[in-house]
């Protein structure tokens, strides 16, 4: 079998990227990273709210990198890659979310009552 000949033109595109796409993705990611970092280090809100802020910023950066770096939605196999990704994310949510709910529940029910009492007195608790 003969080798593919080297031509000066690219035989086909191997990626849907352009310089502006990568650059904008990079800048947005840096901004989102710094935003999350500063939010936490300056303690800009209560813990509960901070968790929500960090989670949101992470999700947005995830989507940014998915689109700007990984070019999801364009190029070959676009449709099936999105289906695969959505399925994987569903499984992640079910398994991780389910596990957290289950483990929290198990830890609570399987802790002896006098330990509950002790933890509550110490200011903590399950």
């Amino acid at each position: 079998m003969s080798r593919v000949s080297h031509t000066s033109k690219p035989l086909e595109q191997h990626s849907s990227g352009t310089l502006s796409l990568y650059l904008s993705g990079f800048i947005m990611s840096v901004v989102l990273t710094l935003a999350a970092y500063l939010a936490v280090t300056t303690h800009v809100a209560s813990t509960g709210v901070l968790i929500a802020i960090v989670a949101m910023l992470a999700t947005v950066q995830f989507l940014v990198q998915l689109f700007y770096f990984l070019h999801i939605g364009s190029g070959r196999n676009a449709r099936w890659k999105i289906i695969a990704l959505l399925s994987a994310l569903s499984v992640v949510f079910i398994v991780v979310g389910g596990s957290l709910w289950i483990m929290y529940n198990l830890n609570y029910h399987m802790t002896p009552s006098d330990i509950h009492k002790y933890l509550n007195e110490q200011g903590g608790g399950i």
């Binding site: 499984v91 079910i94 398994v95 389910g98 289950i102 529940n105 609570y108 029910h109």
Partner: peptide, 18 residues
């Protein structure tokens, strides 16, 4: 099949809701 796995350890101590 991804939503039923706890039925293998009903007796491990989770609450009635779970």
């Amino acid at each position: 099949s991804f939503t039923v796995w706890l039925h293998h350890f009903f007796t491990m101590g989770a609450g009635a809701d779970v």
